[in-house]
């Protein structure tokens, strides 16, 4: 039986799709059977970030509506054979997703995999609430920036009221992944600190992903950052996140890129 994770944020452009791809790949790299599901119907992008955009034949809506079997729509990753993608439809709109259809597809996925990661669309409309509906674990992706924190707060409210677990009075695990964090700027008082965001949102921290060039490089190539640059700072943050999701206790650090001696000296003086 799979654990269902929803990656959500409210605000767009904070790193939901990057996070979905990175967590999915990192779990698969650890030998787990993983399916990443794109719920952003009409604006799909997970296929592109995963480098599978030319292999999409059927999509989530085809499966929800019974036009294709789940096995026909799943795309096996070429690099990791325990990683699969269920893409969103690019043409139809969100109304084509029915509650019953989504419940059935999630039920089927639950049987097949160890982990199912649902990439939520931005916003708080139907697409976002459907993506979180059946989740056991919610990963809230937030940037250290006022509008992102505000929207995350709204999403946390929805997680506590609109999910199946919330309605049954069951516990829904919620975690925060803080992305695009710049320790130097936070230290200089130019950016919200980790503690600030945690105090405001009051959900446990899963990882801090530092601002890094590696994320764009990986997306240019269509390869999750944990696969494309496993030693990079963002990849290490996601790999640690996955270890925590699997129940390991891992010391919380903000990974940094390798620097020259001069760079290290400079950072120390600034800190």
């Amino acid at each position: 039986m799979a654990k269902i994770i929803v990656v959500t944020s409210g605000k767009g452009g904070v790193g939901k799709t990057t996070t979905t791809a990175a967590l999915g790949a990192a779990l698969a790299q650890a030998g787990q059977n993983v399916c990443v599901v794109d719920f952003d119907v009409g604006l799909r992008n997970l296929d592109l970030i995963m480098g599978a955009e030319r292999r999409v034949v059927y999509d989530l809506i085809n499966v929800v509506q019974g036009d294709a079997k789940l096995t026909q729509a799943l795309i096996r990753d070429k690099r990791l054979d325990t990683l699969a993608l269920l893409p969103a439809s690019q043409t139809r709109d969100k109304d084509a997703l029915t509650d019953e259809g989504v419940a059935r597809v999630i039920g089927e996925l639950r049987e097949k995999f160890d982990w199912v990661i649902c990439d939520s669309p931005a916003g708080i409309e139907r697409g976002a609430t459907l993506a979180m509906r059946h989740a056991d674990i919610a990963v809230v992706v937030t940037n250290p920036e006022v509008s992102s924190v505000r929207d995350s707060d709204r999403i946390i409210g929805l997680l506590d009221s609109k999910t199946e677990r919330a309605e049954k009075g069951e516990h829904l695990e919620k975690h925060l992944i803080l992305t695009r964090y710049d320790p130097g700027r936070a230290e200089r008082g130019e950016m919200l600190k980790i503690e600030d965001v945690l105090e405001i949102l009051s959900i446990p921290l899963l990882a801090v992903v530092p601002e890094s060039e590696e994320v764009l490089k990986a997306s240019n190539l269509g390869s999750p950052v944990t696969l494309n640059a496993p030693q990079s700072a963002p990849a290490r943050a996601y790999i640690d996140a996955v270890r925590r999701l699997r129940g390991e206790t891992v010391e919380m650090i903000v990974p940094s890129e390798k620097r020259s001696l001069l760079g290290k000296l400079f950072t120390r003086r600034a800190a």
């Binding site: 006022v146 505000r150 409210g157 936070a186 130019e190 950016m191 600190k193 600030d196 405001i200």
Partner: peptide, 18 residues
């Protein structure tokens, strides 16, 4: 810095919005 301002604005706003 500007971050403490951001923090205060968020705390006030979210107390209301919640």
């Amino acid at each position: 810095g500007t971050a403490p301002v951001a923090r205060e604005r968020l705390q006030i706003l979210l107390a209301h919005e919640r």
